[in-house]
Design a protein around this nucleic acid. Structure first.
Lengths: 355, 355
DNA sequence: AACCAAGTCCAAACCGCTTTGGGCACATCA
DNA sequence: TGATGTGCCCAAAGCGGTTTGGACTTGGTT
């Protein structure tokens, strides 16, 4: 802290104003578009700023304005296996575009389950961010109450069933998507439809199950617990769940899978049994349009309920910036409908006879 | 900017010092562990800070100290398909732990190919970060020169062949890993070994190819261009490349694949042809230990060259914090050796006869 | 008794910007 | 002609910390 740091050599407002023979006040106003400065002066200042390669120090701006010009993404990491859900990458890619355009920074924090409260409190109290995105909400998620109390603007990616506090959110219509997908399979004649779901303390997974159950109920079918699986959505889990179910006395003829990734595992299981997807067994996945898991280039491989998580990121980021600009804004609610994309992984139910 | 912002109600240094009947100087020093304050006073101050829920405003700290207490990760997004490589998520998860412990923020920027220079210049000039991690280096990557000139501390994840400027890096021994893997396949009797590589303007991909070619050369085998493929490492690309190669007159009996994800595609291709991995065709992948693509729970599925990208993230972050603390530190170079994990996807070469 | 070195603490000067509250000159209006 | 704007600019007070350069006690030395 003693040796003169390098960036002192960087042009700053005072230096620039000296060069121009103007006061810092005027230079600041000229660059920030305030009307109290003549157009002629403004141009002169802009030119000089350009010429001297002046970039205002954002640390100073932040202190002076009291705004962090940053939003936080606090990403839960499942401690059990230190997993970070791949949807975050694409969601964040969407959000990042929006922040970049608005001149906001994106602050990323990864936190093990349970450590979130401290992170949010800190982020707020120390003034590191102007708002946050809440990822991976659970049923009646305590973060919603906390953030409301703190008065820190936030937008939830997903919803939190049971929360009595109003909040802003962007979500896919998970219930409807899975209801439609189940209905589609039923229309194809499938009677035994398996659900390979995500962890069911996650709100999205609960909604998907609700949609699935509702569709069965509508047709007067009972849910078979042996056909319902819930865990991390990895390739491996999808595989082992499918293997187990396919070896049941009455195996499913169709799978409804909560993620492309576990879907790959289900496909592996099916093919390993010598069957073909779309023939003996049908599969529908939910497709977040993850960049490294495009569901086919031209033709979709999997029949899927599709909704771009990147787009959700954009929408959420936009909404958050709005809330930050004006806290009095009404709460924001955006429900994305998932498309049902017909691919090659579904077909009419065959009479399946084991043994 | 007119209405009194909420966080003014937050306890700040002056308020706290008033409560204590001390000067802000002393309070600051007490909390920051400076010796010019008696132990008794320090305890009193600490207790009061706790009691009044005092959190120093980091915007003020940053301005006063001239340090951003933040590091930037500038992540290239392939514009063609807006892809963000899944390894980033795990690398970042590793780095994030380190930053969190050190009290640093992680700033994430996503940038389309080519826009990087402006981002780095801005980040530096505006003082948003104290250092950066360079992701996905290419051959003779221009970012290295730029950052050196700016004097912004940085650590490269990977290396940049051809860069005449010294720089700090953390990398896997890609050449050696692929050389060993190729050798392993050759030992099993495979003669026609395909390489399904990443984009070969990426440095890591070049090194992997070099290792592959070297191993073949050592055994006096020529490289067959029709067995060498290079593209984005998606499941789909892996699949289509494998399909194409398997339908050659002289198909490969083994595949060396640069990523778990394209490896899944290769497996699909193989099984779709009615063959089984490890029997008619062998496959070795590179396993970054991505959290959602564990290569088997107990037993590895794929034979693989394995190196944890999360660990690389930790090491890189550690090194960067070191450089930030002391710019005079010698440059940091850390080469991780990949383990060769034997799984079920490899076996002795069979005499393969087509038609 | 005079001097010095610790040991504690404080006032004030930053850090680099924004924003308030004028000042001054010139045109407009009564 | 004096009053009133209005357009343009500036000095200075902030934002909330850190850090410099003393000041004031004490206790120990010579």
């Amino acid at each position: 802290m003693k040796s003169k740091p390098l960036w002192l050599l960087l042009m700053n407002l005072r230096e620039l104003s000296r060069h121009l023979g103007l006061s810092p006040t005027t230079v600041s106003r000229a660059l920030n578009g305030y009307p109290e400065v003549s157009e002629e002066t403004r141009e002169r200042v802009k030119a000089a700023a350009q010429r001297h390669n002046y970039h205002p120090n954002s640390r100073a701006i932040r202190l002076a304005t009291g705004r962090a010009m940053a939003v936080g993404h606090v990403i839960p990491v499942a401690t059990r296996h230190e997993m970070v859900n791949p949807v975050f990458a694409d969601f964040i890619a969407g959000a990042a575009e929006v922040y970049a355009r608005a001149g906001f920074d994106m602050l990323l924090t990864m936190v093990a389950d349970g450590g979130e409260e401290k992170i949010y409190r800190d982020l707020h109290a120390r003034g590191n961010v102007d708002g946050v995105i809440v990822h991976a909400p659970r049923q009646d998620d305590p973060r919603i109450r906390l953030l409301s109390e703190l008065g820190l603007p936030f937008v939830v990616h997903g919803r939190s069933t049971g929360s009595e506090i109003p909040y802003s959110w962007v979500d896919v219509n998970n219930r409807r998507a899975f209801q439609r997908a189940t209905g589609f399979l039923l229309d194809l004649g499938h009677q035994r439809i398996a659900l390979i779901n995500g962890l069911e303390f996650m709100d999205f997974a609960l909604r998907r199950r609700a949609g699935y159950e509702e569709a069965l109920r509508e047709r007067g079918l009972a849910c078979d617990p042996s056909l319902m699986f819930s865990d991390e959505m990895t390739e491996g889990r999808g595989y082992s769940a499918a293997i187990a179910m396919l070896s049941l006395d009455q195996p499913p003829t169709a799978f409804l899978v909560s993620s492309m990734i576990s879907g790959l595992g289900v496909r592996r299981a099916i093919e390993e049994q010598g069957m073909k997807m779309g023939r003996q067994v049908s599969v529908i996945i939910h497709d977040d349009e993850l960049s490294y898991f495009r569901n086919g280039e031209k033709m979709p491989i999997f029949t899927a309920t599709r909704s771009s998580v990147r787009q959700a990121g954009q929408i959420a980021a936009d909404a958050l910036l709005g809330l930050i600009a004006d806290q009095a804004l009404p709460r924001f609610e955006h429900l994305l409908e998932a498309d049902l994309i017909i691919g090659q992984s579904t077909g009419p139910a065959l009479q399946m006879v084991r043994r």
